[in-house]
């Protein structure tokens, strides 16, 4: 078949190649206004031959709708004076345990709200109840078969159930998953990733998107290091390879080692936060 390319500068040229392997979408299609007419077609598109089809440029970010709502969340949170951190990890890395001790430790310093993402249960939200200034649970199972992440729309629905003006900091506890949450902006100011040393040092290379979006990587369960083959130096080198800028904080949510550094990092997000009491 022939393709007629009408370029923005008025030139038109024709490619005669046996298409149907549209795999190579030429980069120059992205320049300016462009219409490609399928003057005649062959193969498996025969049903559309008579009228021909028109190419319409979209050039839109795949998640533009999510990003639009994330921007609205960010605006509303800023107007209410709330700083927001999106906390992500794989299942079992210790997000909820760390968050629970964080809420207890910072009770007198910050008014912290929690937006808890969970596929179907309220187990984590129940653990935090009574320690946070406010908790809203968002079950993601209402999505298409149970979403593996929080998106901006889900977070927006959760925000309506939180007293934003009575909060300094909102912690969004995402669904435990190293892939999907990284792609969805929900309107946060910062992204924290909780990683546990039981997960293996190669994880930054296997889940680069997650490790790249993180502002801080909290390395949890360091109390277990003597019992594991985990190579901390190699993990840190792998992390630096995909994200040279991330802050790294080593903690044990169980023993309390290092957690004060994490608390200070969180307080650093809130300009009005009082300094730690000594």
């Amino acid at each position: 078949m022939g393709r007629f390319h009408h370029h923005a500068d008025g030139t038109v040229h024709r490619h005669d190649h046996d298409h149907l392997e549209d795999d190579h979408l030429e980069g120059h299609h992205l320049e300016g206004h462009h219409i490609e007419e399928h003057a005649r077609d062959v193969g498996d598109h025969t049903g559309y031959l008579e009228t021909g089809s028109t190419r319409v440029e979209v050039l839109e970010a795949l998640l533009s709708e999510n990003d639009r709502i994330a921007a609205a969340n960010r605006r509303d949170l800023a107007e209410a004076g709330v700083r927001t951190v999106n906390v992500m990890s794989s299942p079992g890395a210790g997000k909820t345990t760390l968050l629970r001790s964080t809420l207890i430790a910072l009770e007198d310093r910050l008014r912290i709200g929690v937006l808890e993402g969970d596929i179907a249960t309220s187990i984590d939200a129940d653990l935090l109840e009574g320690h946070a200034a406010a908790v809203a649970l968002v079950n993601t199972s209402a999505g298409f078969g149970g979403e593996c992440h929080l998106d901006a729309v889900m977070v927006r629905s959760g925000l309506t159930r939180l007293p934003l003006r009575a909060l300094d900091l909102l912690v969004i506890e995402n669904v435990g998953n190293l892939v999907c949450p990284a792609e969805f902006d929900v309107g946060e100011d910062a992204r924290a990733m909780i990683f546990s040393v039981t997960e293996g040092e190669e994880k930054p290379l296997k889940y680069p998107v997650m490790f790249r979006v993180a502002d801080v990587v909290v390395v949890n369960k360091v109390d277990l290091l003597p019992y594991l083959d985990f190579d901390l130096d190699r993990f840190l080198a792998n992390l630096r390879d995909v994200n040279p800028d991330a802050t790294v904080i080593q903690v044990s949510a169980k023993t309390g080692e290092g957690v004060a550094v994490w608390f200070d990092w969180l307080c650093g997000l809130v300009p009005s936060a009082p300094a730690a009491r000594t």
């Binding site: 992205l30 399928h38 009228t51 028109t54 190419r55 050039l59 795949l62 998640l63 630096r240 390879d241």
Partner: peptide, 27 residues
């Protein structure tokens, strides 16, 4: 990382795309 000098001071030129490029429609 740069494959020539192994430096880490690099700028990403492509590879981060997440875009709906175009659609073909029947008039």
């Amino acid at each position: 990382v740069c494959h020539a000098c192994h430096g880490h001071d690099v700028t990403l030129v492509s590879g981060d795309e997440f875009l709906i490029d175009s659609i073909d429609v029947m008039e």
